Simulated scan of single mutants.
Amino acid sequence: MIRLATHSDLDRIMVIVNEVIKEMHVRGSQQWSTDYPKRADFIQDINKRELYVYEQAGEVAGMCAFSETGHAEYSLIPFSTTNALTIKRLAISPRYRNKGISHQFIEAIKRVADEKNKQAINGDTFKNNPDAQAFFLKHDFCFIAERPDDEGDVPLYYYELTLK
């Protein structure tokens, strides 16, 4: 079941974040680290009512922010519209992978986007994060652009799913 996250979910969310960081680093992606995402990012998402969790048998198995605000550089990206929701901080515990949870998050964000009269869903990932790239392509997002990140490290890839 997907529901809005609450502050009582934060400890479990951070466990998932740490699991995912370890996996990313093993695969060569530094997209997440001890610097990002932080507990404060999730607190802000919860306070804005933009963080959703997938719960199974009373345990949070994953989370995803459906944000009304894109990242600062989004104005530089040739998305088809600015009237979009942005996927941020999607993560699923390794114990719950390959059970269709990411698909359920996509269906949920589509419903939220429809309720908010959004025309698209967008997101981004690092060039060296092929799992995230595959996620976007699997769910019919189109690759929009590549851009260096602000720190000049690994380039970012930007994706968009047009809804209307």
Score class of each variant (00 low, 15 high):
Asn122Thr: 04
Thr81Trp: 01
Val17Phe: 10
Glu115Leu: 11
Thr82His: 02
His71Ala: 15
Cys142Phe: 00
Asp114Thr: 02
Gly100Met: 05
Pro155Thr: 01
Gly62His: 08
Thr6His: 03
Ile87Val: 13
Met63Gly: 04
Met63Cys: 15
Gln30Lys: 15
Tyr54Glu: 03
Gln104Tyr: 01
Thr125Met: 05
Asp124Lys: 03
Ala57Ser: 12
Ala134Leu: 05
Val154Arg: 10
Gly152Ala: 10
Leu161Trp: 06
Phe143Arg: 04
Ala132His: 10
Ile121Val: 14
Ala65Asn: 13
Met24Trp: 10
Tyr157Ile: 05
Ile121Pro: 08
Val60Trp: 14
Trp32Ser: 05
Ile13Gly: 06
Thr82Ser: 10
Gln44Gly: 01
Glu50Phe: 02
Leu4Gly: 04
Arg89Met: 12
Phe135Ser: 02
Arg111Leu: 13
Tyr36Val: 06
Tyr36Ser: 03
Asn129Tyr: 09
His103Glu: 12
Thr69Met: 13
Lys127Gln: 13
Ala40Trp: 09
Gly70Thr: 07
Asp131Cys: 09
Ala65Asp: 12
Asp9Leu: 10
Lys22Thr: 12
Lys164Trp: 00
Asp124Gly: 03
Ile13Phe: 01
Leu156Tyr: 03
Asp9Ile: 12
Tyr158Ser: 01
Phe135Asp: 00
His139Phe: 15
Glu55Asn: 12
Asp124Glu: 10
Ile13Val: 15
Tyr74Thr: 05
Asp140Cys: 06
Ile2Pro: 08
Thr69Tyr: 11
Tyr52Lys: 07
Ser8Asp: 09
Ile109Gly: 01
Cys64Tyr: 00
Ile92Asp: 02
Glu19Asn: 13
Gly28Trp: 14
Ala84Gly: 01
Asn47Met: 06
Ala57Gln: 12
Tyr54Gln: 03
Lys138Cys: 06
Val20Ile: 15
Ala61Lys: 15
Ala61Gln: 14
Glu115Thr: 03
Ile106Glu: 01
Phe42Val: 08
Gly100Cys: 07
Asn18Cys: 08
Arg39Asp: 02
Gly123Leu: 05
Ser93Asn: 11
Ala57Leu: 09
Glu107Cys: 12
Ile101Leu: 12
Gln30Phe: 00
Lys138Arg: 14
Pro78Phe: 11
Asn18Ile: 14
Cys142Met: 06
Gln30Glu: 12
His25Met: 10
Phe105Trp: 10
Leu156Gln: 01
Arg39Phe: 10
Cys142Gln: 09
Lys38Ser: 04
Lys99Val: 03
Lys118Gln: 07
Tyr74Asn: 05
Ala40Met: 10
Thr125Gly: 01
Lys38Cys: 02
Glu19Leu: 05
Asn98Cys: 05
Gly123Phe: 05
Pro78Ala: 09
Val53Tyr: 10
Ala5His: 08
Ile43Arg: 08
Leu85Ser: 05
Thr162Leu: 14
Lys48Gln: 15
Gly152Glu: 11
Ala72Glu: 14
Ile101Ser: 06
Phe79Tyr: 13
Gln44Arg: 11
Tyr159Lys: 03
Glu151Phe: 08
Ile121Thr: 03
Ile101Cys: 07
Ser93Lys: 10
Ala91His: 06
Lys118Trp: 02
Asp45Tyr: 11
Ser67Leu: 13
Ile144Trp: 03
Arg49Val: 11
Ala84His: 02
Asn117Pro: 05
Glu146Ala: 04
Ser80Phe: 04
Ala61Tyr: 00
Ser75Gln: 14
